[in-house]
Design a protein around this nucleic acid. Structure first.
Lengths: 392, 392
DNA sequence: AACTTGATTTCAAACGTTTGAATAGATTAT
DNA sequence: ATAATCTATTCAAACGTTTGAAATCAAGTT
C-alpha cells in the first residue's frame, strides 16, 4: 500500500521538471516513503523542508508570508516556493487554524435552499465575505428541525467564528442557541426580527411592502380586492397584512372578509402555489366579485394565475395579480408577475457586514448591540396587473 | 506568560470540586475567566477534565465514545457527560481531524447556484452523505474561473476527502486538478463526461432525452417544428440535438434549417430566456410556418412562450412548446411547460455513492476505474404541448 | 506471599502548523 | 578588542484532540 503511493510519487517527481535551482528532483518524497511509515497522502511542510534541506520553521515562515520572511534570503525563498509548487503543497487548514485560532469561517444556515428566496441572500453573503478573506460554511436545513440542530452542532464543531441564519422560519427553541452563546459565537439572522433575543436581525420592511402592493392596485382603480395572507407561523405574514390594511384605509377601500383568506402552515415551498390555486377556485365558486388578488408571495401569485386560467379567465384582463419577493419564476412566467422586490442580495451583504463588524469589535468586549436593520422593498410592475375591466 | 498560565492551572485545580459528582454549578468557567488570559472562548476537554478532576484522556475517551470507554466506570461516564453538556462543550473538529486524519468532508463545487439545475443535485448529494456521516463543503463558483480556482484551493486546504463538481461547464484546464491528484483526492463530476480524463462522471442521457422530446411532438402530429439548440460551449448541446435528429428521422420528419438556431454562449442563467424570446420573434418575422418549438432547456422554453404571447399567439393552441430539465419555473408557469425531466436529485445521490465507494476502496489502492454513469430522463407532459391546429 | 487478572484511569507522543525566543555568523560602531 | 546590530536560520512549545502503551489499585488465584 505504501509502496504503491511511493512509486506514484517517484514517477510524478521524475516527470515534472528537468532542471532547477539545486536539489536533485528524484528523491525527496520517495526517500521518506522508504523510511517513513504513516503517510497521510498529503504534502506537508516537513516534506518541503527535507527536500530543501531546511527547517520546517523557515519553510513555514516563507510560505505563510509571516513578517519574519523579510529576513529570509531571496534565494532560499525562491527555492522553497518552487519546491512547494512542484510538490503540490497546500497548507493544512486544520493544523493552521488549530494553532492560529482563526478559522476564517462563517457558518451559514439556509432554512431551505430549494426556496428561491435563499439563493440571492446566500450569494450576497458570499460576496460580502470575499474581500474579508472569509469563507462561508453553507448548510441546508430543509426546514427540518433535526437537520438544523445537526448542522448547527457541526458549525460549532468546525469552529465557525460567527453564524448567519437565513430564515423566515421557526427555530428558536433550540438549546444549541445557548451553546452558541456559551462559546461566544456571534449570530446574525436574515428574514426575521429576533432582536428581543438580542440577535442582530436583517429584514425587509414587510409593512411598507404590503402598503406598496395595495397602493399599486388602488392607483390602477381596483376596489374589489381579494387577499391571501401568509401562514400563521411565518413572521412576515402579520406586518405585510398590516401594511395592506393601512394602505387600503388610506385609499378608502374596505375588504370583504369573505375575500380574505390565509395560507395554511407550509410544508414545502411549492405549497404556496397550491394554496393560491385552491383559494381562487373557492372564491370563484362563491360568485363574489373581485378584480384583483393580492398574494402573499410570488409562488402563491403564480398559483392564483393558474387557478384563474383554469377557470377560463385571463390575467390581467379579467383579474390582476400581485405577488411578493421577486423570485425568478415571477420574472420568466407569462404574464410576468407584478411584485414587490425584496433586495435579497443586499440583505445578505448587509448581514455579512454586520457580522464582520461584530467580529472586529467583539474581540474587545462581549455584549454588543443587537441591532435591527430594515431594508426597503420596491414595486416591480410587470404585466399581471392592469386597470380593472379589460385591456390595459 | 508561562508563569501566568501555570498559576492559572493551579488555581483552577484547587478550586474546582467541593463535593463528589455533584459539583457546584457556579464556579468553573467563571473563576477561570477571572484569572484566565488567552482563552480561546471555546470550551475544551481540559476544561471538563479540570471540572471533573480527571485526566483529559479519560474525558476524551468517554466523549468520543472510543472503544476504551467500555472500561470507564458508569458513574464517571455520567459525570463527564453532564459536565460537558452543562458547559456547552463541542469537540473541536480541527484538533480532532488533525489527529485522526479524517475530516468527514466532501467538497462540492457548484458551477452556479442561481441555476435551478444545481439545487436538486446538491440536495441529492447531501442526502447521500448523511447516512455516511459525511458533510458537504459547498461552494458556488458562479461560472467564474477565478472563483473556481479559489474555492478548489480552499477545499484542498480544508482537506476534503473527495471533491464532487456539479458542472455542465468548462473548467478543465486548471492545474489545480493536478494538485488534486498529487494529493490523492478522488473526484466525481456531475453533468459532464470527463472519463477521458479518468474522472468518474454522472450525467443524464441527453441523446435519449432529445429523442423523447421529438417523439412526443411527433406523436401529437406535429411536422413543422422549430428547434433552439444549446450553446456551443455546453456539453449537453450536441447529444441532445443528435437525439432530436435521430427521432425525427425515425418519424420521417425533416427540419427546415431556417427554423433551427443555436443559443449564444450564455453569460447568466437567464440568457436562455432572452434567447428563446428573440428566436421566436425572428422566425415569426420570416413568416415560416411551424406548429411547435423544441427548446434547449426550460428557461429557453419560457422565453419562447413569452415571445409567442407577445406576438399575439397562444400556447398550446397556436404553437406547442417543449423544454428540458424540469426546473421549478416550468412547473408553476401557466401553461405548465411540457419538459424532459432530469433526475437531478438521483444524480446527486449517485455521485455521492460513487464517491463513497471510491473512498472506501481507495484506501487500498490508487487508480480506480473512472466509470461513466448515465441516468435516464423522463417525459413530463404539461399543458404547453397539444396536437397542432387549435384546441387539444 | 508472590502472581495473575481485570477494571479503571493516566502518560505521552503525535497530527501539521505558527511564533516568540534563541542561535550562529557576519558586520559595524564604540 | 568588545560590544552592539544585522542577517539568516532554527528551537521548542503550543493549539485540542486521539490512542497505544503503561500505571494504579483491588480482588482472586496459585
Amino acid at each position: 500500500m505504501h509502496a504503491v503511493s511511493a512509486s506514484f510519487f517517484q514517477s510524478a517527481d521524475a516527470s515534472s521538471m528537468p532542471g532547477a535551482d539545486s536539489d536533485s528532483m528524484l528523491n525527496e518524497l520517495s526517500q521518506e516513503d522508504n523510511l517513513g511509515q504513516q503517510e497521510s497522502g498529503h504534502v506537508t511542510l516537513s516534506h518541503i523542508a527535507r527536500a530543501c534541506q531546511l527547517s520546517v520553521s523557515t519553510v513555514s515562515i516563507v510560505l505563510s508570508g509571516a513578517p519574519l520572511s523579510r529576513h529570509v534570503a531571496e534565494k532560499t525563498r525562491k527555492r522553497i516556493q518552487t519546491t512547494a509548487r512542484r510538490l503540490g503543497y497546500h497548507p493544512d487548514a486544520y493544523a493552521r487554524s488549530l494553532r492560529s485560532r482563526r478559522t476564517q469561517t462563517i457558518g451559514v444556515i439556509a432554512y431551505d435552499m430549494s426556496d428561491p428566496f435563499c439563493i440571492p441572500v446566500v450569494s450576497g453573503i458570499d460576496e460580502g465575505l470575499q474581500p474579508a478573506q472569509y469563507f462561508s460554511l453553507l448548510v441546508n436545513a430543509q426546514t427540518q428541525r433535526k437537520l438544523f440542530d445537526k448542522y448547527l452542532r457541526m458549525i460549532l464543531e468546525r469552529r465557525a467564528e460567527g453564524v448567519i441564519v437565513v430564515a423566515s422560519w421557526v427555530f428558536e427553541e433550540t438549546d444549541l442557541l445557548a451553546d452558541i452563546e456559551k462559546n461566544h459565537v456571534p449570530i446574525v439572522i436574515v428574514g426575521r426580527d429576533l432582536t428581543e433575543r438580542r440577535i442582530t436581525s436583517v429584514l425587509v420592511d414587510n409593512r411598507a411592502g404590503g402598503a406598496l402592493m395595495m397602493r399599486h392596485l388602488a392607483s390602477l382603480g381596483h376596489r374589489n380586492i381579494a387577499v391571501i395572507r401568509g401562514p400563521e407561523e411565518l413572521f412576515d405574514s402579520a406586518p405585510r397584512w398590516a401594511g395592506i390594511r393601512q394602505a387600503a384605509t388610506e385609499a378608502g377601500i374596505r375588504f370583504d372578509s369573505r375575500l380574505v383568506s390565509q395560507l395554511p402552515n407550509l410544508s414545502n415551498p411549492k405549497s404556496g402555489f397550491e394554496g393560491g390555486r385552491k383559494f381562487v377556485a373557492e372564491i370563484l365558486a362563491t360568485g363574489r366579485k373581485f378584480t384583483a388578488v393580492l398574494a402573499f408571495d410570488d409562488l402563491t401569485a403564480l398559483g392564483v394565475v393558474r387557478g384563474l386560467v383554469e377557470a377560463g379567465l385571463s390575467v390581467p384582463e379579467d383579474c390582476s395579480v400581485v405577488g411578493f419577493d421577486d423570485i425568478l419564476p415571477a420574472d420568466v412566467a407569462t404574464p410576468g408577475i407584478t411584485t414587490i422586490r425584496q433586495p435579497l442580495h443586499e440583505m445578505g451583504l448587509l448581514a455579512t457586514e454586520l457580522m464582520l463588524h461584530a467580529l472586529k469589535q467583539g474581540q474587545g468586549e462581549g455584549a454588543q448591540e443587537a441591532g435591527l436593520r430594515m431594508v426597503q422593498p420596491e414595486l416591480v410592475v410587470r404585466t399581471s396587473s392592469a386597470a380593472p375591466g379589460g385591456g390595459k
